[in-house]
């Protein structure tokens, strides 16, 4: 379905995740983050870039793999994206909802 995020109309899933990463830009990310109550800073952008790269390489995302990425540790990940870091960070990054239980 279509949704207006920031100044742009994008296609999102029922859960509000972008369908096409090509429709993502920094304004869209900032607007989604705002919905989640997060103001994006440098550390957030580093994580977003990492998640997008993993997605492009078809690597399934888990909390453990993010913790080992060298970009952020698990405690830091929870601090940057409180209450559900993997889901929130994925939504802000414009990639699909993570399906992992770990």
């Amino acid at each position: 379905m279509e949704k207006t995020i920031g100044n742009k109309t994008v296609n999102v899933s029922e859960d509000g995740y972008l369908i096409d990463l090509n429709e993502w830009d920094k304004d869209v990310a900032t607007a989604i983050a705002q919905e989640e109550g997060i103001t994006l800073a440098d550390d957030h952008w580093k994580v977003i870039e990492y998640l997008q790269n993993q997605h492009k390489n078809d690597v399934p995302l888990t909390i453990r793999s993010v913790g080992k990425s060298g970009v952020v540790d698990i405690k830091g990940f929870y601090a940057l994206f409180p209450e559900g870091p993997l889901k929130k960070a994925s939504r802000i990054s414009g990639i699909p909802k993570p399906v992992s239980c770990i």
Partner: peptide
């Protein structure tokens, strides 16, 4: 294979997750 960590590492992850 499913990226499930060993017990000691899993405990560390749990604590870091709050």
């Amino acid at each position: 294979k499913l990226d499930i960590p060993p017990i000691d590492e899993f405990l560390e992850i749990l604590v870091a997750s709050g």
